[in-house]
Design a protein around this nucleic acid. Structure first.
Lengths: 137, 137
DNA sequence: ATAATGTTTCCAGTTACTGGAAGGTCAAGC
DNA sequence: GCTTGACCTTCCAGTAACTGGAAACATTAT
């Protein structure tokens, strides 16, 4: 399998596949006589593993750790669960942050007439975070 | 005001304050005789504006655009609302993605015993995304 | 034989900073 | 007057995780 076949099978751009071997995340593939990278199913499975883990938001270094566990027939599931649980908590935290961001911004968008006049609570709020949009006197 | 006073007032690291002037996001401050950057309240207000906008997830280039609107006494609120609404939609999309990520990962963490045995649905799922964790035969 | 496509390496750029080194400045204390 | 320490300067490099592009070689199709 050349790199484009492998990258199709793995669901990753070829550039990324090369990159993952460059940084040593996955082993460097064997080469054809002409120097072309040659992939087998096991390599593709590892690439898929990495892609999925990345989609879950695991960092490259977490992927490294997970790949190590993936390949270690004797690892405990507790090791894996620990990493995944930490990641889960990060996701939940990010969700809470996004929620308050969303609420605050939605409030401002609602308050903005969106017409051709210059008054705009969004801009006002960015410049004067403590002041509420001013009321009619 | 020297840079650390300004950066305190703006709630940004001094490095970042310098950086924002370097990339032309905010105007370069005047300098003292010795070459120290000197800030006034108006500069600090702009820095606060940028910090807030960044906290809302606006990119630097969006901040550039918003700052332009902030400084333009004749802009329409519609221009601002357009940018903010687009950003709001991005936030909502990100929220939906995070939600499904969270659900999927939480499901896997629940399914993992987390003991010292090697069987682990999390790892299995990463390697074989289509196969459900295997049942007792 | 030639053209189109696939592959290689390498270098640079992206985003938004952050860290650190080497050196100049300022205010306080002795 | 001198030292100490805090503060400031510039510049270079690095981060994460790729992505884009150029120049050159290989393979395949016509």
């Amino acid at each position: 399998m050349n790199i484009s076949a492998a990258s199709n099978a793995a669901g990753l751009p070829a550039k990324t596949v090369r990159y993952y071997a460059d940084i040593g995340l996955v082993p460097a593939p064997v080469r054809s006589e002409a120097g072309y990278r040659s992939y087998d199913d096991a390599s593709v499975r590892k690439l898929v593993f990495v892609r999925r883990a990345r989609e879950f938001g695991f960092s490259i270094s977490e992927c490294r750790e997970l790949l190590g566990l993936y390949e270690d027939r004797r690892r405990s599931s507790a090791d894996v669960k620990r990493i995944a649980t930490a990641r889960l908590e990060e996701i939940a935290k990010k969700q809470r942050e996004l929620q308050s961001l969303h609420d605050e911004l939605a409030h401002l968008v609602d308050a903005c007439r969106g017409d051709d006049r210059p008054d705009c609570p969004i801009i006002d709020s960015l410049g004067n975070p403590r002041s509420e949009p001013r009321m009619a006197p």
